[in-house]
Design a protein around this nucleic acid. Structure first.
Lengths: 211, 211, 211, 211
DNA sequence: TATGAATGAGAATTCATTCAT
DNA sequence: CATGAATGAATTCTCATTCAT
């Protein structure tokens, strides 16, 4: 290790992030209880002791992982809120495809899995997700729907149910990827699913004459 | 331990079921790794050692729990397959409401959560679920859709996507119940969700003039 | 199970013996601590509970096994003591070959192994073996040697050392069989070893004129 | 635990040896199955967990103990092989006395006991002993005997039997010490036994002219 | 800061022993 | 007498956390 090497110095600030990234992988793979700090440390390229310089306990680290995955979602929600006054069909198309994209590229899948798995052991985390992500995403969508209903654009019906029905298939797709593809299920094009789903949702399944 | 009471009773045939039921509760609550056999034994009203009379290992017990939850689903799939030649609108309404009902009354919710959480640690279980439940449910629905498309009843589109979009909102609802309601989310009427979802799916969201 | 069947009734008296025989096998194979009463019961063809009708504890059973293996040796010692006044060469030849024979046919080998292995855990057993077998066998041989020395038949020297030197090779042979042959060592003709050994020993022990 | 004293000290290189030494004591005393890792740890002055820093399992530790006791024997065999071309009487006297000495000072006694006791449970260990110690010691002695026979120094007869007869009494003596002296048998001067034994054996083995 | 040896509480598993049947 | 289900104490092994270096 040559003294004064720049790489080494930059590391120091990057450490927490690297640790969280390693922890995400391991927690997603094993779940909270079965994840070993030894593995996380090894994957982050630090010693076990070093973890404790940045996080007080294993639980702390877990919470950091889950919380860190929230912010991009918040941003996405915020962005979505901008578009609120365009026609519903247009907004919803954009929104769903963008959501599908995010689910493909970000860590939401694994983190969602973790939150689902550990909601009873870490109710605080589930609550944070509920309050910071789910509720807000839902509020945005519900708002869009209510406004569209008021404008006579879309049919009546509980806007919350409509919202869940819009998102549900995407969650289904994410879990399919996360859970079933690794054990041999056929892969899934999340964006294609989103596209077909939103069109069907907008126009319905039945052909005119068959109603 | 009251004197004069037998320390234990001989219940060879009832035991496995009682143990699996207790294990389901604890595993659903804590996840596999965090569940303690002590707790399971206590909740089943037996000693820790007794568990080993019926299950070789903790993992064995876990697998029994998950596998036991499969059979009712199989039955449901079988039943669904009967109705295959009625008009799609009618079949799908019945199917979704029945599914919502089953999700409310059976242990699928907790078990689905467990399978999601532990799919990496127990790929066999995920595979069994995939092969015995998911694939077959999907095949039934996909079959219905294909036939309805052939009859000109419903629009074209990838039948698998259509199927996932039909089921997705129900999964969403189940996880909402399982994960978010316990931490304070508003409860959810799964059947009402199913009813509204199927109607929307069948007829679409947009009002005629708005298309 | 037909009532009044004679086989069944005779069993009752034979049971303890059958259990001890089964226990000998298992203890010899696994050692005391690693032997499982389940295995012993199974090999004896009785239930685990039945063991406790005849023996109070596992240790009791173990002691019964070891003690049971003593009596034939006692008998052998007794028999040997009869021949005491014949010429040493003759007596010792008979004795060693007979001993080799007994070691081949009886359970002394396994039991010796057990006593060696568990002497620290069951000092009582080692003491019983010492007092009832070792000391008496040694006394007989030492007596023979002393008398032969008094008659001028064999050379002077500590009779106890002479005795140990006479028996040692047989013990060596027994342990060879018991320990090394099962893992691939060349088998050993114990009687041939005894024959060659006694001739060499006699040539060494006997005084010229006595040959 | 005195305050101000470090709870533990870092002794990475000394530890394995200390642990093996402690384990030897406990295994020799109790046998493999009855030995408790707690006891071994306590006797080595470390925590139970520390054992697992150096040995994967209890069995691993046991094997390390047995294997560690082999090297000195190997050395002895090597040394013995040097003397091969001196007259048999001289070589064998030196060899047996040296062997008696080694058996008095090294851990062969206890380890031999362990190998005997656990040969069925750990056939690998018995095999290693056979291959690395027994076979080689025997080969050296058998070689000496064959050469002496070829030179007309000692009588004909199966060299392997001769070799076993030479060593047997020493094994007898070691086991006497290990097994019977602790329960009250008269102590034994192993070197004196060796000396008297070799003289008697030589008188028996050597051909008239060679004495 | 960083390391990783050491700790020790905790959990799964085994099995001698008991006792309802 | 005989059975074998049930018990629970005992033991191995794991791993989050600490702390000497």
């Amino acid at each position: 290790m040559l003294p004064g090497q720049p790489k080494w110095r930059r590391r120091k600030d990057a450490r927490p992030g690297e640790i969280v990234a390693a922890a995400l992988e391991v927690f997603a793979e094993k779940g909270f209880a079965a994840a070993r700090l030894d593995d996380i440390a090894a994957r982050a390229g630090v010693s076990k002791g070093a973890l404790y310089l940045y996080f007080e306990t294993k639980q702390d680290l877990f919470e950091a992982v889950v919380r860190d995955a929230i912010s991009p979602n918040i941003a996405a929600v915020e962005a979505a809120a901008q578009a609120m006054d365009l026609p519903f069909a247009q907004v919803s198309r954009t929104l769903l495809v963008r959501a599908a994209d995010m689910m493909s590229t970000s860590a939401i899948g694994p983190v969602a899995k973790m939150v689902i798995a550990e909601s009873r052991n870490f109710p605080d985390l589930a609550r944070v997700w509920h309050d910071a992500v789910v509720i807000r995403v839902l509020a945005v969508i519900t708002g869009l729907i209510e406004r569209a209903q008021a404008r006579g654009e879309i049919r009546p019906g509980d806007p919350r149910f409509h919202a869940l029905a819009l998102i549900g298939p995407l969650l289904m797709g994410v879990l399919w990827r996360e859970v079933l593809v690794p054990v041999g299920a056929e892969p899934l094009d999340l964006t294609a699913l989103a596209r077909q789903h939103i069109e069907t949702a907008l126009t319905g399944l039945l052909i005119e004459g068959a109603r």
